[in-house]
Nucleic acid binder design. Structure first.
Length: 297
DNA sequence: CCTTAATCCTGGAAGC
DNA sequence: TGCTTCCAGGATTAAG
């Protein structure tokens, strides 16, 4: 089973990058597929000649931040590359001396002066890469459209967002403008953990239910990070390393199978065009209108 | 303004 | 066995 890069996977990639490439200098950048660099970015400037100073993350997106020493110790020219892995994207670090063979899906390779390499690979190319002249520009022009990070958002802030939408809670939680980091897998797992119906309208979610959501969400994500972290060594990638990383899905991908809580068959519907699996019995805590909608399926 | 639907893309699974 | 069809997913864009 493929590992989808949601927040926990991305967080582990960032930690891996911090341990491996931060401090290294980029000697050369190979762009094997130009259109993987999105927007008006100039592909030639993907931190070439710069030193990785920091890795930032917001939700599922993260940024490689580099600096160039223009004058000795006085003026630093900053730049950064924002990455989004989409569905099948991965970033893998090859230590100096380790052979690597780029295939047709390896789109960008950073060659470091110490001989290490960093390779971005994405078969389906839902992912991409954006360049900015500073972290501030990235934050103001791109990350400003995202909600708060799923790991740090407070119940009060989430409740504020949910209150003003009539969309199903699942749609709202998938929307990165509501909060950043959740994907289809974790949303289904989270709603099951909170016993909330996926079609429950956002504005009907109570303060108490939002508190439960945030509490469960933090626990879920933290646990997933810990599980993924145990497999990290030299590699910055999570796909292709299955050892020890079997995520325990209670509902995702288990439609028709027994609900782990009550034993009834899990049901599969479509919400916001996404496959949604849940337990009609355990997650029946919907009110009036939405309950009728749910029953229509 | 709010919400939904189509679009992108490829590999793997399922169907004939 | 080999071919075709369908499906999975996140974010952007267009349309309702």
């Amino acid at each position: 089973m493929t590992v989808m890069p949601e927040l926990p996977e991305v967080e582990n990639i960032c930690r891996g990058l911090t341990d491996t490439v931060v401090g290294s200098m980029v000697n050369r950048v190979t762009i094997r597929r130009v259109d993987i660099v999105r927007g008006s970015s100039r592909p030639a400037d993907l931190l070439r000649g710069q030193t990785f100073t920091r890795i930032d993350r917001l939700g599922k997106q993260f940024a490689l931040i580099g600096q160039t020493l223009v004058h000795k110790g006085s003026l630093n020219k900053e730049a950064c590359v924002c990455l989004h892995l989409g569905m099948t994207g991965s970033l893998r670090f090859y230590p100096p001396g380790e052979p690597y063979r780029p295939d047709g899906h390896t789109h960008v390779v950073w060659h470091l002066t110490d001989g290490g390499r960093l390779a971005f690979r994405d078969p389906r190319r839902f992912g991409g890469l954006w360049t900015f002249d500073s972290v501030t520009t990235l934050t103001e022009t791109r990350w400003s459209k995202l909600g708060e990070d799923a790991l740090t958002i407070t119940p009060a802030r989430l409740h504020m967002k949910l209150k003003r939408t009539r969309r199903p809670i699942k749609s709202a939680l998938l929307d990165q403008a509501t909060l950043a980091g959740l994907g289809n897998i974790y949303v289904d797992e989270l709603l099951f953990g909170c016993r909330l119906h996926p079609l429950y309208p956002g504005h009907e979610v109570t303060r108490e239910e939002t508190q439960l959501l945030v509490r469960k969400m933090r626990a879920l994500l933290t646990r997933a990070i810990a599980l993924g972290g145990s497999t990290l060594k030299d590699y910055v990638d999570t796909s292709g390393r299955s050892g020890g990383f079997q995520r325990v899905h209670k509902v995702y991908g288990r439609s028709g199978q027994a609900c782990p809580r009550c034993g009834l068959p899990l049901v599969r519907i479509a919400v916001a065009g996404r496959t949604t699996v849940f337990c009609e019995d355990c997650q029946a805590s919907v009110m009036s209108r939405s309950e009728r909608v749910a029953k229509d399926y």
